[in-house]
């Protein structure tokens, strides 16, 4: 169900050095928070991590689980900035896990593991998941009406892995509506299958339905323009490194990622997509 390990490799294993050229220093491959301010991408990513840490009620005594931890930007924030008791991340990407190990962050561990197979030996008191839910369901499964059940299972597992009183800092892209413009339809469809195979972004009402009976929504904020700005910064950095990317990874990689990021910017501008941050409380 959703993105397989092979699908994840397509999305994230081009090369860590490639992604390092256009993501922020921490390698957050998710929306940063600008709040309308003229700040750097790095500062916006720290804002995002701070907000989601607050939503998860992370403190120095916390044991944090990061579901879909990417290259470890959030784990590093928890280990070095929040100085948590422990933080553990799971990802399906071998390349991402290798980067986390390379960073050698105190109190932080990570493993290559599907959330469907994960069996922790401890109960976490703070759960975080930043744009991983987009990989839970495939477009075909969504069309077949299987999304809410799959998301509910995810929230059930997070409930099982967490201690009573826990909070969950969650971030997801939102699928607002399908484009009707033919070129936009083709571009969005291409991104779905070529860059993120096996996955599809959730609709807000699907998340709201699926959290019950496991998590209560305490806060919810949408951040459409923040993601427009984030993807603009990514494309700007990609283009500034065009010659290096073409030389290192070929013309197709540069052209594909330029098309993909341009489609994202347009998607957030035209309301096809948005982004949401949620503060959830465990229903004990």
């Amino acid at each position: 169900m959703g993105s397989s390990k092979a699908d994840i490799a397509v999305s994230y294993d081009v090369s860590n050095d490639f992604f390092r050229l256009w993501l922020d220093e921490g390698m957050n491959y998710t929306c940063g928070i600008f709040d309308g301010q003229d700040i750097s991408l790095e500062k916006a990513q720290i804002n995002k991590l701070r907000i989601l840490s607050e939503f998860a009620h992370v403190g120095p005594d916390s044991t944090v689980l990061d579901i879909g931890c990417g290259w470890g930007a959030n784990l590093e924030y928890q280990g070095r900035i929040n100085k948590v008791k422990a933080a553990h991340g799971i990802t399906l990407s071998e390349a991402q896990c290798a980067e986390i190990r390379r960073r050698n962050i105190p109190k932080v561990t990570a493993e290559v593991c599907s959330y469907l197979d994960y069996r922790p030996s401890v109960k976490f008191d703070a759960v975080m998941s930043i744009c991983m839910m987009e990989h839970i369901v495939s477009p075909e499964e969504a069309r077949a009406g299987k999304a809410i059940a799959a998301y509910r299972n995810y929230f059930r597992l997070a409930h099982e892995w967490s201690a009573p009183g826990s909070h969950f800092g969650l971030q997801t892209i939102l699928r607002n509506f399908v484009p009707r413009d033919r070129q936009d339809l083709r571009d969005v469809g291409w991104v779905t299958y070529a860059i993120f195979p096996g996955g599809i972004t959730p609709r807000l009402e699907e998340i709201i339905a699926a959290v019950n009976p496991y998590w209560e929504v305490l806060e919810l904020k949408t951040r459409r323009l923040d993601y427009r700005m984030t993807t603009w910064h990514w494309r700007d950095r990609l283009r500034k490194n065009e010659a290096k990317i073409r030389a290192g990874w070929g013309d197709k990689v540069f052209e594909d990622y330029d098309r993909y990021l341009s489609t994202c910017i347009r998607g957030f501008e035209k309301h096809y997509q948005s982004l949401a941050q949620y503060c959830l409380k465990r229903i004990d």
Partner: peptide, 27 residues
């Protein structure tokens, strides 16, 4: 036809008939 082409056909219907099919009905 793939899903993108199918959606283009839906957009064609909407344009010709001046209707809007809600996304939640498309599935």
């Amino acid at each position: 036809m793939d899903s993108v082409a199918t959606m283009e056909l839906v957009a064609y219907f909407e344009e010709k008939l001046q209707i809007r099919i809600p996304d939640e009905d498309l599935g």
